[in-house]
Design a protein around this nucleic acid. Structure first.
Length: 603
RNA sequence: GGCCCGGUAGUUCAAUGGAUAGAAUAGAAGUUUCCUAAACUUUAGAUACAAGUUCGAUUCUUGUCCGGGCUACCA
C-alpha cells in the first residue's frame, strides 16, 4: 500500500475518531508538500473546515495530534500553516520500503486484471512509415506494456490498410514506369520503393490534369478524365473482381512493403500479436449491416443505401452501406470490432488513433452501443495529437513529411558522434557499440515522443535535432549507467578487500540512521513508483511515467553529486547509499522499460 | 456555418480546484580528488483577453480574440 493511500486512510480514521463523522478516504485531499515547507505530504483542510464549521488551523492541530499518536510508525511530526496540515513521514517507513523493494522480485503490485486489446500502427501499404506512425507505435506499444505490467492480459494488434484506390495508384505507376525494377534490383527498402511509385503516380496525375486544363477542361473534368486515374479506377474494379494478374501484382508489391515495415518495426522495437488486413476484413461489415437492419437500428433508403440516424445523439445521419452494396470505412470498423471480440473476448479494446478521427471513433462506439453489442462500452479511443512542424502540419504534397527510417538513422548517427566524443566505452566491441548507438538513439526518440501527454499535439523541429541533454531519454540512460558504474565499483572493492564483509546484499540496519534530505527525497520518489504506474495504466498515459522517471533521475543526480557513496562517512551510510543506488537503477530500468526504452550498463 | 480540441517563460513541455505556476532548452555566472561534466549549483524569464462561481481558478462556467481538427456513397 502506498504512502498516500495510508495517509488518506489514517486521516479518515482520525476524522471519525475526533469528530464522529465518517468520511470517504478518497475525499481526503493529499498532496506532496511543497519544498519550501517542512514535511513530506500535506492534507488540505479547507474542505473539512466547512463541514465541521471549525477553523482549518484548529482542525489541522487536532488531526495532526491524533495522526501522530495513532500512527507513530508512519509520522514523526506535523505542522499547520493556514489550511495545510504538513506531515513528516518517518525515516523508518522509507527504510522499510527500501529493504522490502530491494529484496522483492517485482516492484509493481497488482491484482488480476482484464482482457485488453490494443490496436495501433495502422499503416497504409503505399508508403513508408513517418513520424506520426512513430508516435502511434510508441504509444500503443507502451500502453500495452503498462497494462501488462499492471496485471492485464493484453493482445496487441495492427490493422493494415492494404487495399483501395490509393494502393492501386502505386501499382499503376509501377506498371508504367518501373521497367521491371524491384527492391532487390535497386537495393531500395521495399516500403520506400513502393512509396516512390505512389509519388510518381501523383506527379503523372498532376501533369495529365494540367494538360487537360490547358486544353480547356474544367478542373473537375480534368481530374476525372486523366487517363492514369481512369486506369487506376479500372484496376480497383479488377482487384475487387479478383482478376488474377492484378492480385498477383498486388501481392508482390505488398510483400515488398511488408518486408520494409518488418525492418522498421524490428529496429524500433514494435511488434504485434496479430495483424488484421483490410483486404480480409472489409467484407465483415455486411454482417453488421444485416444485424442493424433486423434490429431496426439501420434503415434502407429507396436507392438501396443503408443509414443510421444519430441526430438524437447530436450527430448526423451516417451512411453505413453504399447503394451498390459495398461497405464504407465505418462499416468495416464495425465488422472488425465484432471480429476481434469473437476472437479474443476482450473487456476493453483500445484504439490508438489520431485525434482527427475523434468523430469517427465516437460514431463507431455509438453504433455498436445502439446495436446492443455487449463489448461496446469497453471501447476506448486513445486519441493522440498530431506531430507538427514549426510551420504546421506535415504535408506529403509539400514534401515535409518526416520519414521514420530517415529520422531513426539520423538519431543513430548523432548518438554515435556524441558517444565518440564523450563516452568511456573504449573497450566496447563493434557490435556493442552499434547496440549502444541504437539504444541511445531510440531512447532519445521514444522519450521525446512519449514525454508529452498523448492527447496534446506536439511540435518537432527538423532543424534542431532531438536533444540528448536535460529532460530527455539519454539523460535518464546516463543516470542509470552512472549508477551501475558505482555499483560495479563497489563490488570490485569489496571483492578486493580482505575484510569482505558478508553483507554483499546490503542491509542498512535502520537503527540510528537519519536520512539526509536528498536521500529522503529520492526514497520518497522511489516509493511512488507503484502509484505512478497504476495512474498511467488508468489514464492510458505513458507520459506520466516519463515525467516520473525523469524526476527520479534528476533527484538522483543531485543526490550522488552532493553525497559520496563509495567513500561515505560511515560503513552504514555507504551500505544505505549503495542500496539506494541499486533501487534507483532498478526503478529507472523498469520505468523506462514500460516506455519501450532500454537503459545501458555503460555509456 | 455547425461540432470538437487547444492557447502557460524567447522556444519545447509540466501542474487530482490549493501554498510563492514547475522543468528543459536558449541567455548570464560558477563546479571536475567516490562513480562517467550526456552531470551539478546559482541567476533571470510565462498562465491570450474580459466577466462569473469559490475561502482559493492555469484548472470549472460564459463571452471575445487567435490557432488546429472534423463536418465524403475516401480510408
Amino acid at each position: 500500500m502506498s504512502v498516500t493511500t495510508k495517509i488518506k486512510s489514517a486521516a479518515a480514521n482520525a476524522i471519525t475518531k475526533t469528530y464522529g463523522i465518517t468520511i470517504d478516504e478518497s475525499l481526503v485531499a493529499v498532496n506532496e508538500t511543497k519544498s519550501e515547507f517542512d514535511g513530506d505530504y500535506t492534507v488540505v483542510l479547507f474542505g473539512l473546515s466547512k463541514q465541521f464549521k471549525k477553523g482549518p488551523e484548529e482542525i489541522g492541530k487536532e488531526l495532526g495530534e491524533k495522526l501522530l499518536v495513532d500512527n507513530s510508525d508512519l509520522f514523526t511530526s506535523y505542522n499547520v500553516i493556514k489550511g495545510f496540515l504538513n506531515l513528516t513521514i518517518a525515516d523508518e517507513y522509507y527504510l522499510n520500503y527500501l529493504t522490502a523493494a530491494s529484496s522483492s522480485q517485482n516492484l509493481l503490485q497488482f491484482e488480476k486484471g482484464k482482457k485488453v486489446m490494443v490496436e495501433y500502427s495502422s499503416p497504409n501499404t503505399n508508403k513508408p512509415l513517418h513520424l506520426g506512425h512513430l508516435r502511434n507505435n510508441f504509444l500503443g506499444w507502451s500502453v500495452a506494456q503498462i497494462l501488462k505490467a499492471t496485471g492485464n492480459e493484453v493482445r496487441k494488434t495492427a490493422i493494415v490498410n492494404d487495399r483501395g484506390i490509393h494502393i492501386c495508384k502505386s501499382m499503376i505507376a509501377w506498371q508504367k514506369f518501373a521497367n521491371g525494377d524491384t527492391p532487390e534490383s535497386t537495393g531500395k527498402k521495399g516500403d520506400h520503393f513502393v512509396g516512390d511509385y505512389y509519388v510518381r503516380f501523383n506527379d503523372e496525375y498532376k501533369k495529365q490534369t494540367s494538360e487537360l486544363l490547358a486544353a480547356g477542361q474544367t478542373k473537375e473534368d480534368a481530374e476525372r478524365h486523366a487517363p492514369i486515374m481512369k486506369e487506376t479506377q479500372q484496376m480497383l474494379v479488377d482487384w475487387e473482381a479478383g482478376k488474377p494478374e492484378v492480385l498477383e501484382l498486388w501481392r508482390t508489391m505488398n510483400s515488398w512493403v511488408y518486408a520494409g515495415f518488418d525492418t522498421t518495426y524490428k529496429r524500433i522495437g514494435s511488434d504485434f500479436d496479430k495483424s488484421y488486413y483490410e483486404s480480409q476484413t472489409y467484407l465483415l461489415g455486411k454482417k453488421i449491416v444485416d444485424i442493424g437492419l433486423s434490429k431496426n437500428v439501420f434503415y434502407k433508403k429507396d436507392d438501396g443505401s443503408v443509414w443510421i440516424n444519430l441526430t438524437d445523439e447530436g450527430l448526423d445521419e451516417k451512411l453505413v452501406m453504399r447503394r451498390d452494396g459495398t461497405s464504407v470505412y465505418i462499416t468495416q470498423d464495425l465488422g472488425l470490432a465484432n471480429q476481434k471480440h469473437e476472437e479474443f473476448a476482450y473487456d476493453d479494446s483500445i484504439y490508438v488513433v489520431g485525434d482527427e478521427q475523434n468523430y469517427h471513433m465516437k460514431v463507431l462506439q455509438l453504433i455498436l452501443k445502439k446495436l446492443g453489442m455487449p463489448y461496446a462500452n469497453g471501447i476506448h479511443h486513445l486519441s493522440y495529437g498530431m506531430v507538427e512542424l514549426p510551420t504546421g502540419r506535415m504535408k506529403s504534397r509539400e514534401g515535409t513529411v518526416v520519414d521514420a527510417d530517415d529520422l531513426v538513422e539520423e538519431m543513430v548517427q548523432q548518438a554515435k558522434e556524441k558517444t565518440i566524443e564523450k563516452s568511456k566505452v573504449d573497450d566496447f566491441t563493434g557490435d556493442e557499440l552499434t547496440q549502444l548507438y541504437e539504444t541511445i538513439a531510440l531512447g532519445a526518440l521514444k522519450f521525446f515522443l512519449l514525454k508529452v501527454d498523448p492527447k496534446k499535439k506536439m511540435v518537432f523541429n527538423p532543424e534542431e535535432s532531438i536533444d540528448f541533454h536535460g529532460f530527455t531519454g539519454p539523460f535518464i540512460q546516463y543516470t542509470h549507467a552512472r549508477l551501475k558504474s558505482i555499483l560495479r565499483k563497489a563490488v570490485e572493492e569489496s571483492s578486493k578487500s580482505l575484510v569482505q564483509s558478508s553483507n554483499s546484499h546490503l542491509e542498512p540496519s535502520g537503527e540510528g540512521l537519519k536520512l539526509l534530505p536528498l536521500e529522503k527525497e529520492l526514497l520518497r520518489l522511489l516509493e511512488q513508483f507503484n502509484t505512478v504506474v497504476h495512474e498511467a495504466a488508468k489514464g492510458f498515459n505513458p507520459s506520466t511515467i516519463g515525467n516520473y522517471v525523469y524526476a527520479v533521475a534528476k533527484t538522483c543526480n543531485s543526490f550522488y553529486t552532493e553525497h559520496k557513496v563509495l567513500t561515505a562517512e560511515t560503513e552504514e551510510k555507504k551500505q544505505l547509499r549503495l542500496q539506494l543506488c541499486k533501487l534507483t537503477a532498478t526503478t529507472i530500468k523498469e520505468g523506462m522499460a514500460l516506455l519501450g526504452i532500454k537503459v545501458p550498463e555503460r555509456m
